[in-house]
Amino acid sequence: MNRIVETRVLAPEVKYFRVEAPRVARKRRAGQFVIVRVTGNGERIPLSIADADPEAGWIALIVQGVGRTTRTLNRLEVGDAVHDLVGPLGMPSEIREYGTVVVVGGGIGTAVVFPTAVALAEAGNEVIGIIGGRSREFVILEDEMRAVCVDVYPTTDDGSYGYHGLVTDKLTELMVAGDRIDYVMAAGPVPMMRAVAEVTRPAGIDTVVSLNPIMVDGTGMCGGCRVSVGGETRFACVDGPEFDAHLVDFELLARRNASYGAFEFYRNEEFAADEPCRVDPPALR
């Protein structure tokens, strides 16, 4: 059992947790993740390690409630515990002195890029943050990003806060303005990551994305998280989760992530009372 020592709601259905995990807190490096089981017979879900304090012995996880497991997790409070967690897993972010780096986070993706932004800044890079959300309330970790970035540009789809537009619109603007950009790191919804890749590709800017495929064990044993990178099958859990954005087959990733859409939808019914149903039920296959 790993005890929850702090919680904070960051956005609707997006919650910040500090969870006791002393060894993981000492070992983890930016870009790595843990696999959590919320209950004793629960599924195993991968979550990025957003932050950690090796002295105090906690790691931070930021959770968006989308399926039954994440929504169950989001109902936990200080003093509760997750059943178990394992990590750190995955390859750490490749931290070097690139020069000027733009870190792009879309929605919950900001929690994924934040620790890498910290590490890049510590390595002497000039880090610029672009953090997007549907509207103002969905832009997260702005203060934390400001603490390590030279500039942070919040963006919203509806213009309710910061730059009115997509994260890629802002990224394009920076590129057009002629600012030198040596490296881009992005995480967020698959369409967003794909869009970032398309924006930086013509300019030849090295770009990595942190992928979020379905996983089970997280140690390379099952191959459920396989992604196609440069035409080769790679396992996100042990070869990634970060890959060269210009080589990733995003369409395949999006499709595979939809494998259990119907299962998720129908088992989510117990949460239906919380939220009006906005979409038609997906067809069972």
Partner: peptide, 26 residues
């Protein structure tokens, strides 16, 4: 599926049991 994934979902994660939390294609 790899056999590892298929069997892990069913055996370790008990996807065969009613009310299983781990999904498996029908």
């Amino acid at each position: 599926y790899s056999a590892n994934e298929f069997l892990t979902r069913v055996n370790l994660m008990r996807a065969y049991a009613a009310g299983a939390e781990t999904p498996l294609l029908d």
